[in-house]
Design a protein around this nucleic acid. Structure first.
Lengths: 219, 219
DNA sequence: TGTACATCAGTGAACGCGCGTTCACTGATGTAC
DNA sequence: TGTACATCAGTGAACGCGCGTTCACTGATGTAC
Protein backbone atom coordinates (compact mmCIF):
# COMPACT_ATOMS: atom_id res chain seq x y z
CA UNK A 1 0.00 0.00 0.00
CA UNK A 2 2.88 2.38 0.64
CA UNK A 3 4.49 3.80 -2.44
CA UNK A 4 8.19 4.41 -2.63
CA UNK A 5 8.17 7.98 -3.93
CA UNK A 6 6.00 10.81 -2.76
CA UNK A 7 5.64 12.10 -6.28
CA UNK A 8 4.24 8.82 -7.53
CA UNK A 9 0.78 7.67 -6.73
CA UNK A 10 0.17 3.96 -6.28
CA UNK A 11 -1.60 2.19 -9.05
CA UNK A 12 -4.33 1.03 -6.73
CA UNK A 13 -6.09 3.68 -4.77
CA UNK A 14 -6.57 1.64 -1.64
CA UNK A 15 -9.79 3.27 -0.47
CA UNK A 16 -11.40 4.32 -3.68
CA UNK A 17 -14.91 3.39 -2.67
CA UNK A 18 -14.78 5.76 0.27
CA UNK A 19 -13.06 8.43 -1.78
CA UNK A 20 -15.72 8.20 -4.47
CA UNK A 21 -18.50 8.58 -1.92
CA UNK A 22 -16.87 11.71 -0.57
CA UNK A 23 -16.41 12.98 -4.10
CA UNK A 24 -20.08 12.25 -4.72
CA UNK A 25 -21.03 14.34 -1.70
CA UNK A 26 -18.98 17.26 -2.93
CA UNK A 27 -20.41 17.02 -6.45
CA UNK A 28 -23.93 17.05 -5.06
CA UNK A 29 -23.16 20.01 -2.88
CA UNK A 30 -21.87 22.26 -5.61
CA UNK A 31 -23.42 20.92 -8.82
CA UNK A 32 -26.63 19.39 -7.60
CA UNK A 33 -28.25 16.21 -8.79
CA UNK A 34 -28.29 17.28 -12.42
CA UNK A 35 -24.51 17.79 -12.29
CA UNK A 36 -23.93 14.43 -10.68
CA UNK A 37 -22.08 12.16 -13.12
CA UNK A 38 -19.77 9.23 -12.70
CA UNK A 39 -17.07 11.05 -14.62
CA UNK A 40 -17.16 14.09 -12.38
CA UNK A 41 -17.00 11.93 -9.26
CA UNK A 42 -14.06 10.00 -10.68
CA UNK A 43 -12.33 13.26 -11.57
CA UNK A 44 -12.63 14.57 -8.03
CA UNK A 45 -11.43 11.29 -6.58
CA UNK A 46 -8.40 11.63 -8.84
CA UNK A 47 -9.05 8.47 -10.72
CA UNK A 48 -9.85 7.48 -14.28
CA UNK A 49 -13.47 7.79 -15.27
CA UNK A 50 -14.02 4.09 -15.76
CA UNK A 51 -12.91 3.20 -12.23
CA UNK A 52 -16.25 3.74 -10.44
CA UNK A 53 -17.72 0.86 -12.44
CA UNK A 54 -15.88 -1.59 -10.22
CA UNK A 55 -17.46 -0.19 -7.08
CA UNK A 56 -20.96 0.89 -7.88
CA UNK A 57 -21.89 -0.47 -11.27
CA UNK A 58 -23.92 2.47 -12.50
CA UNK A 59 -25.26 5.82 -11.39
CA UNK A 60 -28.32 4.29 -9.76
CA UNK A 61 -26.16 2.05 -7.59
CA UNK A 62 -24.00 4.99 -6.64
CA UNK A 63 -26.95 7.19 -5.73
CA UNK A 64 -28.53 4.36 -3.77
CA UNK A 65 -25.44 4.10 -1.58
CA UNK A 66 -25.37 7.87 -1.12
CA UNK A 67 -29.04 7.86 -0.11
CA UNK A 68 -28.37 5.06 2.39
CA UNK A 69 -25.54 7.06 3.92
CA UNK A 70 -27.95 10.01 4.12
CA UNK A 71 -30.40 7.92 6.13
CA UNK A 72 -27.55 6.76 8.36
CA UNK A 73 -26.63 10.32 9.10
CA UNK A 74 -30.22 11.44 9.61
CA UNK A 75 -30.69 8.59 12.08
CA UNK A 76 -27.63 9.69 14.05
CA UNK A 77 -28.69 13.32 14.13
CA UNK A 78 -32.19 12.39 15.28
CA UNK A 79 -30.81 10.17 18.02
CA UNK A 80 -28.50 12.90 19.24
CA UNK A 81 -31.26 15.47 19.51
CA UNK A 82 -33.68 13.01 21.06
CA UNK A 83 -31.13 12.07 23.69
CA UNK A 84 -30.73 15.60 24.98
CA UNK A 85 -34.45 16.31 25.39
CA UNK A 86 -35.73 16.78 28.93
CA UNK A 87 -39.36 15.91 28.40
CA UNK A 88 -41.77 14.56 25.83
CA UNK A 89 -42.67 17.95 24.41
CA UNK A 90 -39.04 18.74 23.84
CA UNK A 91 -38.30 15.32 22.41
CA UNK A 92 -40.94 15.72 19.75
CA UNK A 93 -39.88 19.27 18.98
CA UNK A 94 -36.21 18.29 18.75
CA UNK A 95 -37.11 15.48 16.40
CA UNK A 96 -38.93 17.80 14.05
CA UNK A 97 -36.13 20.34 14.21
CA UNK A 98 -33.36 17.80 13.65
CA UNK A 99 -35.21 16.39 10.64
CA UNK A 100 -35.73 19.84 9.13
CA UNK A 101 -32.17 20.87 9.87
CA UNK A 102 -30.84 17.80 8.15
CA UNK A 103 -32.89 18.69 5.08
CA UNK A 104 -31.71 22.28 5.15
CA UNK A 105 -28.06 21.39 5.55
CA UNK A 106 -28.07 18.55 3.04
CA UNK A 107 -30.67 19.55 0.51
CA UNK A 108 -29.51 17.33 -2.35
CA UNK A 109 -29.07 14.33 -0.10
CA UNK A 110 -32.53 14.86 1.31
CA UNK A 111 -34.02 15.16 -2.15
CA UNK A 112 -32.32 12.00 -3.34
CA UNK A 113 -33.32 10.02 -0.27
CA UNK A 114 -36.93 10.68 -1.20
CA UNK A 115 -36.65 10.06 -4.91
CA UNK A 116 -37.88 6.51 -5.18
CA UNK A 117 -37.63 6.60 -8.96
CA UNK A 118 -33.87 7.23 -8.89
CA UNK A 119 -32.91 4.57 -6.36
CA UNK A 120 -32.58 0.84 -6.47
CA UNK A 121 -35.86 -0.56 -5.17
CA UNK A 122 -34.20 -3.87 -4.37
CA UNK A 123 -31.30 -2.53 -2.33
CA UNK A 124 -31.13 -4.30 1.01
CA UNK A 125 -28.64 -1.71 2.20
CA UNK A 126 -31.00 1.19 1.50
CA UNK A 127 -34.02 -0.55 3.01
CA UNK A 128 -32.02 -1.20 6.15
CA UNK A 129 -30.83 2.39 6.48
CA UNK A 130 -34.29 3.88 5.84
CA UNK A 131 -35.78 1.30 8.21
CA UNK A 132 -33.53 2.49 11.01
CA UNK A 133 -34.58 6.09 10.57
CA UNK A 134 -38.15 4.93 10.62
CA UNK A 135 -37.62 2.89 13.76
CA UNK A 136 -36.21 5.91 15.55
CA UNK A 137 -39.25 7.96 14.58
CA UNK A 138 -41.56 5.16 15.63
CA UNK A 139 -39.98 5.03 19.05
CA UNK A 140 -40.51 8.76 19.45
CA UNK A 141 -44.21 8.15 18.88
CA UNK A 142 -44.30 5.14 21.19
CA UNK A 143 -42.76 7.15 24.00
CA UNK A 144 -45.34 9.86 23.51
CA UNK A 145 -48.00 7.21 23.92
CA UNK A 146 -46.36 5.59 26.92
CA UNK A 147 -46.05 2.34 24.96
CA UNK A 148 -42.97 0.11 25.21
CA UNK A 149 -40.34 0.85 22.59
CA UNK A 150 -39.44 -1.37 19.72
CA UNK A 151 -36.37 -3.46 20.24
CA UNK A 152 -35.89 -4.48 16.62
CA UNK A 153 -36.93 -2.94 13.34
CA UNK A 154 -40.51 -1.88 13.06
CA UNK A 155 -40.86 -4.35 10.24
CA UNK A 156 -40.23 -7.29 12.56
CA UNK A 157 -42.78 -6.37 15.18
CA UNK A 158 -46.51 -6.10 15.18
CA UNK A 159 -48.01 -2.77 16.14
CA UNK A 160 -51.59 -1.76 16.83
CA UNK A 161 -53.62 0.20 14.34
CA UNK A 162 -53.76 3.26 16.54
CA UNK A 163 -49.96 3.22 16.68
CA UNK A 164 -49.81 3.24 12.90
CA UNK A 165 -52.19 6.18 12.87
CA UNK A 166 -50.01 8.13 15.27
CA UNK A 167 -46.87 7.31 13.29
CA UNK A 168 -48.40 8.51 10.05
CA UNK A 169 -49.73 11.63 11.72
CA UNK A 170 -46.34 12.40 13.24
CA UNK A 171 -44.10 11.51 10.36
CA UNK A 172 -46.31 13.36 7.87
CA UNK A 173 -46.05 16.43 10.06
CA UNK A 174 -42.29 16.15 10.53
CA UNK A 175 -41.54 15.33 6.92
CA UNK A 176 -44.03 17.78 5.46
CA UNK A 177 -42.66 20.65 7.48
CA UNK A 178 -39.07 19.85 6.51
CA UNK A 179 -39.89 19.43 2.85
CA UNK A 180 -42.06 22.53 2.50
CA UNK A 181 -39.46 24.61 4.29
CA UNK A 182 -36.65 23.24 2.17
CA UNK A 183 -38.51 23.99 -1.04
CA UNK A 184 -39.34 27.54 0.02
CA UNK A 185 -43.06 27.02 0.42
CA UNK A 186 -43.33 28.73 3.78
CA UNK A 187 -42.80 32.21 2.45
CA UNK A 188 -45.98 33.46 4.14
CA UNK A 189 -44.01 33.44 7.35
CA UNK A 190 -40.69 35.27 7.81
CA UNK A 191 -37.88 32.73 7.80
CA UNK A 192 -36.73 33.97 11.19
CA UNK A 193 -39.96 32.75 12.76
CA UNK A 194 -40.10 29.33 11.11
CA UNK A 195 -38.63 27.70 14.16
CA UNK A 196 -41.13 29.36 16.48
CA UNK A 197 -44.04 28.23 14.34
CA UNK A 198 -42.63 24.71 14.22
CA UNK A 199 -42.17 24.62 17.97
CA UNK A 200 -45.78 25.60 18.57
CA UNK A 201 -47.10 23.19 15.97
CA UNK A 202 -44.99 20.27 17.17
CA UNK A 203 -45.83 20.87 20.81
CA UNK A 204 -49.53 20.97 20.10
CA UNK A 205 -49.34 17.83 18.03
CA UNK A 206 -47.32 15.90 20.60
CA UNK A 207 -49.72 16.90 23.36
CA UNK A 208 -52.65 15.89 21.26
CA UNK A 209 -51.10 12.48 20.60
CA UNK A 210 -50.45 12.00 24.29
CA UNK A 211 -53.97 12.99 25.27
CA UNK A 212 -55.58 10.91 22.55
CA UNK A 213 -53.37 7.81 22.74
CA UNK A 214 -55.19 4.59 22.01
CA UNK A 215 -58.02 6.54 20.40
CA UNK A 216 -60.89 4.58 18.94
CA UNK A 217 -62.21 5.34 15.51
CA UNK A 218 -65.28 7.38 16.33
CA UNK A 219 -66.50 7.39 12.73
CA UNK B 1 -53.78 30.20 -40.73
CA UNK B 2 -55.42 27.77 -43.13
CA UNK B 3 -53.08 25.99 -45.49
CA UNK B 4 -54.08 25.17 -49.01
CA UNK B 5 -53.00 21.54 -49.16
CA UNK B 6 -53.64 18.90 -46.52
CA UNK B 7 -50.27 17.33 -47.13
CA UNK B 8 -48.46 20.53 -46.39
CA UNK B 9 -48.05 21.91 -42.93
CA UNK B 10 -48.09 25.64 -42.45
CA UNK B 11 -44.82 27.31 -41.72
CA UNK B 12 -46.17 28.71 -38.49
CA UNK B 13 -47.60 26.28 -36.04
CA UNK B 14 -50.30 28.58 -34.77
CA UNK B 15 -50.50 27.19 -31.26
CA UNK B 16 -47.00 26.02 -30.62
CA UNK B 17 -46.80 27.20 -27.08
CA UNK B 18 -49.76 25.07 -26.10
CA UNK B 19 -48.47 22.16 -28.17
CA UNK B 20 -45.08 22.35 -26.48
CA UNK B 21 -46.66 22.29 -23.04
CA UNK B 22 -48.61 19.19 -23.95
CA UNK B 23 -45.47 17.64 -25.39
CA UNK B 24 -43.69 18.52 -22.16
CA UNK B 25 -46.36 16.72 -20.16
CA UNK B 26 -45.98 13.61 -22.26
CA UNK B 27 -42.19 13.67 -22.01
CA UNK B 28 -42.42 13.94 -18.24
CA UNK B 29 -44.87 11.13 -18.08
CA UNK B 30 -42.81 8.60 -19.94
CA UNK B 31 -39.23 9.76 -19.58
CA UNK B 32 -39.30 11.57 -16.27
CA UNK B 33 -37.50 14.73 -15.37
CA UNK B 34 -34.08 13.39 -16.38
CA UNK B 35 -35.42 12.70 -19.87
CA UNK B 36 -36.93 16.13 -20.18
CA UNK B 37 -35.10 18.12 -22.85
CA UNK B 38 -36.08 20.95 -25.11
CA UNK B 39 -35.17 18.85 -28.14
CA UNK B 40 -37.44 15.98 -27.14
CA UNK B 41 -40.32 18.34 -26.49
CA UNK B 42 -39.80 20.01 -29.87
CA UNK B 43 -39.67 16.60 -31.55
CA UNK B 44 -42.99 15.58 -30.05
CA UNK B 45 -44.57 18.88 -30.99
CA UNK B 46 -43.42 18.24 -34.57
CA UNK B 47 -41.26 21.29 -34.73
CA UNK B 48 -37.59 22.08 -35.14
CA UNK B 49 -35.53 21.87 -32.00
CA UNK B 50 -34.71 25.56 -31.88
CA UNK B 51 -38.35 26.62 -31.93
CA UNK B 52 -39.04 26.39 -28.16
CA UNK B 53 -36.55 29.21 -27.60
CA UNK B 54 -39.09 31.71 -28.84
CA UNK B 55 -41.66 30.62 -26.27
CA UNK B 56 -39.82 29.67 -23.12
CA UNK B 57 -36.24 30.81 -23.39
CA UNK B 58 -34.59 27.90 -21.65
CA UNK B 59 -35.38 24.72 -19.77
CA UNK B 60 -35.90 26.54 -16.50
CA UNK B 61 -38.49 28.81 -18.04
CA UNK B 62 -40.24 25.83 -19.57
CA UNK B 63 -40.30 23.88 -16.30
CA UNK B 64 -41.51 26.94 -14.43
CA UNK B 65 -44.53 27.19 -16.71
CA UNK B 66 -45.20 23.46 -16.33
CA UNK B 67 -45.00 23.76 -12.54
CA UNK B 68 -47.41 26.69 -12.63
CA UNK B 69 -49.86 24.65 -14.67
CA UNK B 70 -49.47 21.89 -12.09
CA UNK B 71 -50.48 24.27 -9.31
CA UNK B 72 -53.42 25.43 -11.42
CA UNK B 73 -54.62 21.87 -11.79
CA UNK B 74 -54.03 21.02 -8.14
CA UNK B 75 -56.05 24.09 -7.16
CA UNK B 76 -58.95 22.96 -9.36
CA UNK B 77 -58.91 19.41 -8.04
CA UNK B 78 -58.83 20.62 -4.46
CA UNK B 79 -61.73 22.99 -5.10
CA UNK B 80 -63.78 20.23 -6.69
CA UNK B 81 -63.31 17.85 -3.79
CA UNK B 82 -63.87 20.56 -1.21
CA UNK B 83 -67.11 21.56 -2.88
CA UNK B 84 -68.69 18.11 -2.59
CA UNK B 85 -67.93 17.66 1.11
CA UNK B 86 -70.92 17.55 3.45
CA UNK B 87 -69.22 18.57 6.66
CA UNK B 88 -65.95 19.87 8.04
CA UNK B 89 -64.51 16.42 8.73
CA UNK B 90 -65.15 15.39 5.19
CA UNK B 91 -63.84 18.63 3.77
CA UNK B 92 -60.49 18.19 5.46
CA UNK B 93 -60.30 14.52 4.49
CA UNK B 94 -61.19 15.27 0.88
CA UNK B 95 -58.53 17.93 0.77
CA UNK B 96 -55.85 15.54 1.95
CA UNK B 97 -57.02 12.86 -0.45
CA UNK B 98 -57.22 15.20 -3.44
CA UNK B 99 -53.73 16.46 -2.75
CA UNK B 100 -52.30 12.93 -2.45
CA UNK B 101 -54.21 11.77 -5.50
CA UNK B 102 -52.81 14.60 -7.54
CA UNK B 103 -49.29 13.60 -6.48
CA UNK B 104 -49.94 9.95 -7.30
CA UNK B 105 -51.43 10.68 -10.69
CA UNK B 106 -48.88 13.33 -11.68
CA UNK B 107 -45.72 12.25 -9.92
CA UNK B 108 -43.26 14.17 -12.09
CA UNK B 109 -45.35 17.31 -12.03
CA UNK B 110 -45.64 17.09 -8.28
CA UNK B 111 -41.89 16.62 -7.93
CA UNK B 112 -41.13 19.58 -10.14
CA UNK B 113 -43.63 21.84 -8.40
CA UNK B 114 -41.64 21.32 -5.22
CA UNK B 115 -38.17 21.65 -6.67
CA UNK B 116 -37.33 25.21 -5.87
CA UNK B 117 -33.84 24.81 -7.29
CA UNK B 118 -35.13 23.98 -10.77
CA UNK B 119 -37.67 26.76 -11.09
CA UNK B 120 -37.46 30.46 -11.73
CA UNK B 121 -37.59 32.13 -8.33
CA UNK B 122 -38.69 35.39 -9.91
CA UNK B 123 -41.61 34.05 -11.90
CA UNK B 124 -44.72 36.06 -11.17
CA UNK B 125 -46.78 33.43 -12.97
CA UNK B 126 -45.53 30.62 -10.72
CA UNK B 127 -45.91 32.64 -7.52
CA UNK B 128 -49.47 33.43 -8.50
CA UNK B 129 -50.36 29.80 -9.23
CA UNK B 130 -48.76 28.48 -6.04
CA UNK B 131 -50.39 31.30 -4.10
CA UNK B 132 -53.81 30.22 -5.28
CA UNK B 133 -53.27 26.66 -4.14
CA UNK B 134 -52.12 28.04 -0.85
CA UNK B 135 -55.16 30.29 -0.53
CA UNK B 136 -57.46 27.32 -1.08
CA UNK B 137 -55.69 25.38 1.66
CA UNK B 138 -55.79 28.39 3.96
CA UNK B 139 -59.52 28.71 3.50
CA UNK B 140 -59.96 25.06 4.42
CA UNK B 141 -58.23 25.82 7.70
CA UNK B 142 -60.20 29.01 8.27
CA UNK B 143 -63.47 27.16 7.84
CA UNK B 144 -62.34 24.54 10.35
CA UNK B 145 -61.75 27.37 12.78
CA UNK B 146 -65.01 29.13 12.05
CA UNK B 147 -63.10 32.19 10.86
CA UNK B 148 -64.14 34.26 7.85
CA UNK B 149 -62.55 33.16 4.61
CA UNK B 150 -59.98 35.10 2.68
CA UNK B 151 -61.32 37.05 -0.22
CA UNK B 152 -57.98 37.76 -1.87
CA UNK B 153 -54.64 36.02 -1.80
CA UNK B 154 -53.30 35.12 1.58
CA UNK B 155 -50.39 37.41 0.88
CA UNK B 156 -52.61 40.45 0.74
CA UNK B 157 -54.36 39.89 4.05
CA UNK B 158 -53.17 39.85 7.60
CA UNK B 159 -53.81 36.70 9.58
CA UNK B 160 -53.39 35.95 13.28
CA UNK B 161 -50.50 33.91 14.58
CA UNK B 162 -52.73 31.06 15.62
CA UNK B 163 -54.04 30.89 12.06
CA UNK B 164 -50.49 30.58 10.76
CA UNK B 165 -49.90 27.76 13.22
CA UNK B 166 -52.97 25.90 12.06
CA UNK B 167 -52.04 26.37 8.43
CA UNK B 168 -48.53 25.01 8.96
CA UNK B 169 -49.89 22.11 10.97
CA UNK B 170 -52.45 21.27 8.29
CA UNK B 171 -50.36 21.78 5.21
CA UNK B 172 -47.42 19.88 6.67
CA UNK B 173 -49.75 16.98 7.34
CA UNK B 174 -51.37 17.09 3.93
CA UNK B 175 -48.14 17.59 2.03
CA UNK B 176 -46.10 15.17 4.12
CA UNK B 177 -48.62 12.39 3.67
CA UNK B 178 -48.77 12.90 -0.09
CA UNK B 179 -45.01 13.09 -0.49
CA UNK B 180 -44.18 10.10 1.70
CA UNK B 181 -46.81 8.02 -0.04
CA UNK B 182 -45.60 9.04 -3.48
CA UNK B 183 -42.01 8.16 -2.66
CA UNK B 184 -42.97 4.76 -1.25
CA UNK B 185 -42.14 5.53 2.34
CA UNK B 186 -45.35 4.10 3.76
CA UNK B 187 -44.45 0.50 3.15
CA UNK B 188 -45.12 -0.43 6.77
CA UNK B 189 -48.78 -0.26 5.89
CA UNK B 190 -50.39 -2.24 3.05
CA UNK B 191 -51.12 0.13 0.18
CA UNK B 192 -54.76 -0.90 0.25
CA UNK B 193 -55.15 0.61 3.69
CA UNK B 194 -53.35 3.88 3.05
CA UNK B 195 -56.62 5.67 2.47
CA UNK B 196 -58.12 4.34 5.69
CA UNK B 197 -55.11 5.47 7.70
CA UNK B 198 -55.22 8.89 6.06
CA UNK B 199 -58.93 9.26 6.77
CA UNK B 200 -58.45 8.53 10.45
CA UNK B 201 -55.41 10.80 10.71
CA UNK B 202 -57.04 13.69 8.86
CA UNK B 203 -60.26 13.41 10.81
CA UNK B 204 -58.42 13.47 14.11
CA UNK B 205 -56.36 16.43 13.05
CA UNK B 206 -59.33 18.43 11.78
CA UNK B 207 -61.24 17.78 15.00
CA UNK B 208 -58.26 18.80 17.02
CA UNK B 209 -57.92 22.04 15.11
CA UNK B 210 -61.61 22.77 15.58
CA UNK B 211 -61.48 22.06 19.29
CA UNK B 212 -58.28 24.01 19.80
CA UNK B 213 -59.00 26.98 17.53
CA UNK B 214 -57.56 30.23 18.76
CA UNK B 215 -55.25 28.35 21.12
CA UNK B 216 -52.85 30.31 23.19
CA UNK B 217 -49.22 29.41 23.48
CA UNK B 218 -49.19 27.58 26.79
CA UNK B 219 -45.43 27.34 26.86
C1' DT C 1 -57.77 48.04 -52.40
C1' DG C 2 -52.92 47.88 -52.78
C1' DT C 3 -48.13 48.31 -51.48
C1' DA C 4 -44.10 48.57 -48.47
C1' DC C 5 -42.03 47.37 -44.45
C1' DA C 6 -41.21 45.72 -39.76
C1' DT C 7 -41.81 42.03 -36.82
C1' DC C 8 -42.11 37.62 -35.45
C1' DA C 9 -42.18 32.31 -35.54
C1' DG C 10 -39.92 28.59 -37.20
C1' DT C 11 -35.93 26.22 -40.06
C1' DG C 12 -31.90 23.44 -40.47
C1' DA C 13 -27.06 23.06 -40.43
C1' DA C 14 -23.17 23.55 -37.59
C1' DC C 15 -20.64 24.07 -33.16
C1' DG C 16 -18.48 22.15 -29.05
C1' DC C 17 -19.37 19.52 -25.06
C1' DG C 18 -19.67 15.92 -21.67
C1' DC C 19 -21.72 11.85 -21.00
C1' DG C 20 -21.83 6.37 -20.26
C1' DT C 21 -19.89 2.35 -22.13
C1' DT C 22 -16.59 -0.72 -24.10
C1' DC C 23 -12.15 -2.84 -24.50
C1' DA C 24 -7.53 -4.39 -24.48
C1' DC C 25 -4.21 -3.36 -21.27
C1' DT C 26 -1.34 -3.23 -16.91
C1' DG C 27 0.04 -3.02 -12.22
C1' DA C 28 -0.71 -4.98 -7.61
C1' DT C 29 -2.24 -8.47 -4.43
C1' DG C 30 -3.21 -12.85 -2.63
C1' DT C 31 -2.94 -17.80 -2.67
C1' DA C 32 -1.37 -22.56 -3.77
C1' DC C 33 2.27 -25.42 -3.58
C1' DT D 1 11.58 -18.74 0.86
C1' DG D 2 10.42 -18.76 -3.85
C1' DT D 3 7.61 -19.26 -7.94
C1' DA D 4 3.46 -19.51 -10.74
C1' DC D 5 -0.96 -18.14 -11.48
C1' DA D 6 -5.58 -16.21 -10.84
C1' DT D 7 -7.97 -12.29 -9.56
C1' DC D 8 -8.93 -7.80 -9.10
C1' DA D 9 -8.54 -2.52 -9.40
C1' DG D 10 -7.49 0.98 -12.29
C1' DT D 11 -5.91 2.95 -17.13
C1' DG D 12 -6.63 5.50 -21.24
C1' DA D 13 -8.15 5.66 -25.86
C1' DA D 14 -12.09 5.18 -28.64
C1' DC D 15 -17.12 4.80 -29.65
C1' DG D 16 -21.58 6.89 -30.54
C1' DC D 17 -25.00 9.81 -28.66
C1' DG D 18 -27.94 13.65 -27.52
C1' DC D 19 -27.76 17.88 -25.67
C1' DG D 20 -28.14 23.38 -25.69
C1' DT D 21 -26.78 27.17 -28.39
C1' DT D 22 -25.81 29.93 -32.34
C1' DC D 23 -26.70 31.81 -36.80
C1' DA D 24 -28.10 33.15 -41.30
C1' DC D 25 -32.25 32.18 -43.38
C1' DT D 26 -37.29 32.19 -44.76
C1' DG D 27 -42.17 32.19 -44.57
C1' DA D 28 -46.25 34.45 -42.58
C1' DT D 29 -48.64 38.19 -40.34
C1' DG D 30 -49.87 42.72 -39.11
C1' DT D 31 -49.74 47.64 -39.72
C1' DA D 32 -49.06 52.24 -41.85
C1' DC D 33 -50.25 54.92 -45.44
Amino acid sequence: MEHSKDSKLPYHHGALRQALLEAGDSVLRDRGLSGFTLRECARRAGVSHAAPKHHFGDVRGFLTEIAALGFDQLTRQLQTQIAIAHDLDEEFINTTRAYADFAGENPEHFRIMFRYDLLSATSERLAQAAGETFTVLTNVVLRQRGDPELLASVYDEKVAESVIDDIVLSWSHIHGFAHLKLEQQMSMVPAATHDDVMVRASRRLSRFIRSDAGHQDEG
